[in-house]
Amino acid sequence: MDRLDAREGVVTFGALARSGFRRWSTYRQATIAGAFTNVVFGFLRCYVILAVAAATAGGLAAGYDAEQLATYVWVGQGLITVVGMWGWTELADRIRTGEVAADLLRPVPPVVSYLAADLGRFGHAMLTRFVPPMVVGAIFFPLYVPHRAGTIPLFLVSVVLGTLVSFAGRFLVNATAYWLHDARGPIGLWTLASGVLAGLYFPLRLLPDWAAVLLYAALPFAGMLQIPADVLTERDGPALQAGLVAVQAVWAAGLLFACARVQKRAESKLVVQGG
């Protein structure tokens, strides 16, 4: 297999990401429908969480004030598709149909090419799926405006890391199809767990402290929504804010490494068994 040098590698990666972007921009109507749905859920969850905050002493629920909570909800709605929490079964489908063999013939490792395509998808979703809920949320609810200069750049880093975590997790559950007949079970479990454990339904810090700490650090899911939303709403001081992003980075690196290892195992299995 050819080894690409670094410069060529970057060019190839960019081309793959661009084609990922273009592929998603052809689903224009589905994008509009999806953004509408995110907005409806934004209203629902925002009203509920604000009612909870209003009923709490001092209007603070789990240390967030009303503006922070509203922002939390709308950022969450915007990020579902950006990090790509749900619905990716492409790898599992290609494994099941055997098409994955064609991926192995390309000079780019499959993890890298799928990651590039996913970042293209991320770029498209950032423009089309993150902006609309944020705009609607800002029109109908008072949202929190960050005070610290570093927050916005840190938020963007956090979102990219969240996407990497989400991609790697999805890749791993899809890759179970190399060994199981049917990857729908693991994918279903991932879908189920990611919603609640990423903090989509409620901020994780509404849970008892020990549970919250566990979910932030010992599982990767918080990195997909909870941490980026915490960063943007400045829930914590600068040190903890940066520390949470560092936790995300560790998870992203670890999971991507696991993806590479799993893919390698799967490839040697395919070679031995002839697919």
Binding site: A30, T37, L44, V48, A51
Partner: peptide, 25 residues
């Protein structure tokens, strides 16, 4: 290409009905 639009009313409806209506405004 209506995509997920329907789920705003099906699953959205489920979420809406899970809470007392005065929660909303």
């Amino acid at each position: 290409d209506s995509g997920e639009l329907g789920s705003a009313f099906t699953y959205g409806g489920r979420d809406f009905t899970s809470y007392p209506v005065p929660v909303y405004a």
